[in-house]
Write a protein that binds this DNA or RNA. Structure first.
Length: 927
RNA sequence: GCCUAGGUGGUGGAACUGGUAGACACGCAGGACUUAAAAUCCUGUUCCCGUUAAGGGAGUGCGGGUUCGAUUCCCGCCCUAGGUACCA
């Protein structure tokens, strides 16, 4: 029998599906292991060869863990709410659910072709009512929760109401809006229902408030900060402007510190951890008040360098700061107004691009320095951002470059504050030296000055130590159709949750997927969509990240009708042990998921502080485009003549993308090229060495560049096992690399060699039950050890090489021993499950059971070297046998190498100055 | 600018805590089998010198350093990719 990958792979894929081979056991004494892939958005383009890279890696790991005796949960599903299906709906009128369903079907076929060991009975789709019912339910939990800082956790809103009823707002330490009211218990009880609800909204973790949002007019929706890149939308690259809107938000800032601390406990790639740290952006410093006696008020600033406070020579407010109008004197009014107007016109993008120009305006007012009482002039400038800190800074030109430039430009004083500071040319932010010109901290060092200053400021009531975060609360509403409806209705303008029994709140049908004529979101078009027939529902839907922020829980118990997942299931599977996906989710999905996980933990639904224990980022697979060079005539028009890459400099040419699927090793198949496009039918070629060589370039994989390689085509020609092995062989998993089919023959050849180990020249199975030789055992145990080590450190590419070496060795040994081959295919199973399943059955084992085999134990004794030809270097240069180097007899060398001898006894009198041991072995001798 | 990762043959890449750099694979060259092709197998393949060979020299982005010994560790620089930015 020949190795026929096509029939063999289909057969086993069907077998696995029918038998449910990869369903984890419900009850078992095996340890659990949860391997998760980031589930895909099912796009219309289908999968290309880059997409399954991470899935293959996680599948290898899952299968390996099964062989190692773990009860493995390895599920897959679809993040099926999203913009492309909605855009398509707007253009064609086709319901997004229909598009989505078709795309999912295609994805499923493609995934099935690769032979993944998913338990498809646990599939989830975020756009299914059975699923988004629980997304809505979690929203309700967030709405009904507040963050208690003293307990450092979220608590049900009822506990807050009780405190208000008993003690009023006294002593409540919450993460909440800034404009909360102070009241007594009696006052609380006297409040109207409306006032009470308005007040509670300021504490809820899911809350409604007017906030400045990133509004994208082209997409007709608001975007979260992580969806805006350099002032344009991540999706589509449309301009984004700032706009004030009533919006649902999530109080993720309450968790800033826990999100930061949790990063120390997870096993994630360092770059990703860094990205999250930067995103959260914790700054430790102080908040300082600069009094404004004439207004019985003060300006609050945040600084990380309170020690430089005596170097303050002015204060800068953001142009949008609320005190600007109050502070502007009559004389300065015109100047300030014109400056405000100018900055308002500048878009976020311009403001970021233009960091060179110094601009600002003086308000005409002065604040009192909190420690010296000196008058400090108050300016406005657009280098101070309204959205960070308090929107006001104390300017210390000697210690901050921006302040320095500003001071120089507007001729403001620059005060040195350290005896080692060099401020002749630019600011010097040093913390070294001792303070000068600094009142009572003169002569102190940094470490003494900071606590002394904080203490003094606290005594004066003009400042305190403070921690500031860059991260903002997450905007939760989208003015879109294809998303989860928010389970909220409005009564007297106030939001109320619908009853839990009324979930899911189904997405209503609409006639069109565009905003209404009055500018309301698409849901405003839904006929008679009112709560109890009279109250307006919330019209915005949830953002894309809602459904993906908890999905790993649903896999644990995907069909549960009573809860998002049964307590027993959650207690058993706990959290994800291994998560594989792209690093592009660093500040979106991975942050929001950690946030919701923590909220659900605080509310008592599970016990895991972090959802993803270990995380691996697979690299992006780019496209590798091929080009042909069309010769241009004198008028610069394209001819029907195409010149090979090496000769193109001799002509005037135009490079054209050519389908990579008709190019082999960069040699164009000219016959297929003529059929590629009708206008190429009469193409002629200028060849080099009888071939047409194409040019190449690495680009994003996309249809328009004709560089998309469909895994289905590869599988058709070489099989799924080859694809799996080759994707791993391509290089380290984490690395981004261009796809190149050139080397795939090598792994295909390897699989045929594996097949031939079991078969003779006629294709007949020939297996011997004889005892294997030492050399055969050695080859086997080398691979057992190597693959185990490689998989544990996610170095899949080196395993593939090791397999090739092993099979070459066994082929040379003409090994056909059952004891060797059976263990070999068990070790190979995670990488190439189809061929191994077939061979397993051919060996007479029960069909379809290799996945439940036991990974063969490694026996080190088979790897021990018996010879004593032991190379050493002498003076780090020459390499020679130890017996030659020291003129010793082989017996003595054997004793030394085995560590049984007193080395010195043999080395005395040989002129040896130093012996270098590595791991107990002699590596080098210095004479 | 800052943070992170990386820079090794014609190509993808290997070398796991410092110990024979270039495993494995592709490609290329030559050969065997075959009427021929496919398939398969064998040999060679870092560069330079040496007619072949024996042998010698250089070599992991660049310049230094530590060490008997450095792709690996340290210092300074250059380049590439990703992230991020008037964040006070």
């Amino acid at each position: 029998m020949e190795y026929n990958h096509q029939s063999l792979e289909k057969k086993w894929q069907q077998f696995w599906a029918e038998k449910g081979t990869f369903k984890p056991a419900a009850t078992t004494d095996k340890p659990k292991y949860y391997v998760l892939d980031m589930f895909p958005y099912p796009s219309g383009a289908g999968l290309h060869v880059g997409h399954p890279l991470g899935y293959i890696a996680s599948d290898i790991f899952s299968r390996y863990k099964r062989l190692k005796g773990f009860n493995v949960l390895h599920p897959m599903g679809y993040d099926s709410f999203g913009l492309p299906a909605e855009q398509y709906a707007i253009q064609t009128g086709q319901h997004p659910a229909v598009t989505t369903e078709a795309n999912i079907k295609r994805y499923r076929e493609q995934l099935d072709n690769i032979g993944f060991s998913y338990d498809w009975s646990r599939e989830v789709r975020t756009s299914e009512p059975d699923y988004y019912k629980w997304t809505q339910w979690i929203f309700m939990q967030l709405f009904n929760a507040w963050y208690n800082v003293d307990a450092d956790k979220a608590e049900p809103i009822d506990s807050l109401i009780k405190r208000f009823e008993n003690n009023g707002s006294e002593g409540v330490n919450a993460v909440c809006d800034e404009d909360v009211t102070l009241f007594t218990a009696a006052e609380w009880k006297a409040f109207s229902e409306e006032t009470q609800q308005l007040e509670l909204l300021k504490y809820r973790l899911a809350y409604l408030r007017e906030s400045t949002v990133n509004w994208c007019a082209a997409l007709g929706t608001v975007l979260a900060n992580d969806e805006v890149i350099n002032g344009v939308s991540e999706r589509g690259g449309y301009p984004v402007e700032q706009k004030k809107m009533m919006q649902w938000s999530m109080r993720i800032t309450a968790y800033a510190d826990r999100l930061l601390r949790g990063l120390d406990t997870v096993d994630w790639p360092e770059p990703l951890v860094e990205m999250q740290r930067n995103w959260i952006g914790k700054s430790v410093g102080a908040s300082v008040k600069f009094p404004l006696p004439q207004f019985v008020s003060n300006i609050e600033v945040f600084t990380t360098r309170v020690d430089t406070i005596f170097g303050v020579s002015f204060i800068v407010l953001a142009p949008e700061h609320e005190l600007v109008d109050t502070l502007t004197t009559i004389g300065q009014r015109a100047e300030i107004e014109s400056y405000k107007e100018k900055t308002a016109k500048k878009s976020e993008l311009d403001r970021m691009a233009d960091t060179k120009t110094v601009s600002g305006a003086f308000t005409g007012s002065y604040a009192k320095h909190p420690l010296t009482g000196a008058d400090v002039p108050i300016w406005i400038a657009d280098y101070v951002l309204a959205g960070y800190g308090t929107g006001a800074v104390m300017a210390v030109p000697s210690g901050d470059q921006r302040d320095y430039v500003f001071a120089k430009h507007f001729n403001l004083p620059i005060i040195a504050i350290s005896d080692v500071q060099d401020i002749a040319e630019e600011a010097d932010a040093t913390k070294e030296g001792r303070y000068i010109n600094s009142d009572f901290i003169d002569g102190m060092v940094y470490e003494e000055a900071v606590p002394a200053l904080i203490k003094r400021l606290e005594e004066l009531g003009l400042g305190k130590a403070k921690i500031n975060y860059r991260m903002r609360d997450a905007i939760f509403g989208r003015q879109r159709y294809w998303g989860e409806p928010v389970p909220v209705y409005f009564k007297e303008g106030l939001p109320y949750l619908i009853e839990e029994e009324e979930l899911p709140l189904l997405l209503p049908e609409v006639d069109k997927y565009l905003p209404t004529e009055t500018g309301e979101p698409p849901l405003g078009r839904a006929d008679g969509w009112k709560y109890q027939g009279k109250y307006d529902y919330e019209l915005s839907t949830m953002p894309g990240w809602a459904g993906s922020s908890w999905y790993w829980f649903r896999y644990m118990d995907p069909t549960n009708k009573e809860s998002f997942a049964a307590k027993e299931a959650v207690d058993y599977w706990k959290s994800v042990d291994l998560y594989i996906g792209g690093s592009e989710h660093a500040t979106g999905h991975l942050l929001y998921s950690r946030f919701w996980n923590k909220v659900l933990k605080d509310l008592g639904y599970h016990n895991e502080e972090e959802p993803f224990k270990k995380l691996i980022n697979q690299g992006m697979i780019q496209g590798r485009s091929n080009f042909v060079y069309r010769v241009l005539d004198d008028e610069g028009k394209g001819t029907n003549l195409f010149v090979s890459h090496g000769l193109r400099d001799q002509y005037s040419t135009m490079a054209l993308h050519v389908d990579v699927n008709i190019v082999y090793h960069d040699v164009l198949d000219t016959a297929k090229f003529k059929a590629f496009r009708p206008d190429f039918a009469n193409a002629e070629f200028i060849l080099e060495d009888g071939k047409y060589i194409c040019g190449t370039e690495v680009e994003k994989m996309s249809k328009s560049k004709f560089n998309v390689v469909n895994p289905d085509d590869i599988i058709e020609t070489y099989g799924a096992d080859t694809l799996r092995l080759y994707e791993m062989f391509l290089g380290p998993l984490e690395q981004s690399k261009p796809w190149n089919t050139n080397g795939i023959e090598g792994v295909y050849k390897f699989l045929r060699k594996v097949w031939r180990l079991f078969h003779d020249a006629e294709g007949k199975l020939v297996i011997s039950d004889e005892e294997p030789t030492k050399a055969e055992y050695k080859a086997l145990h080398k691979i057992i050890k190597k693959v185990e080590e490689d998989i544990e450190r996610f170095s899949f590419n080196t395993s593939v090489s090791a397999f090739m070496i092993c099979v070459n060795e066994l082929t040379d040994l003409k090994c056909n021993k059952r004891k060797i081959l059976q263990d070999l295919i068990i070790v190979l199973e995670p990488y190439a499950p189809h061929i191994t399943e077939e061979l397993w059955a051919l060996l007479g084992n029960e069909a379809g059971t290799i996945s439940y085999a036991t990974y063969p134990p490694f026996r080190p004794e088979y790897l021990v070297e018996s010879e004593f030809a032991y190379p050493v270097s002498v003076n780090g240069k020459m390499k020679m046998n130890l017996s030659l180097a020291l003129d010793l007899d082989p017996k003595a060398v054997e004793e030394i190498v085995l560590g049984n001898a007193d080395v010195q006894r043999y080395l005395d009198g040989k002129g040896v100055k130093k012996v270098v041991f590595v791991k107990g072995k002699i590596i080098n001798i210095v004479v």
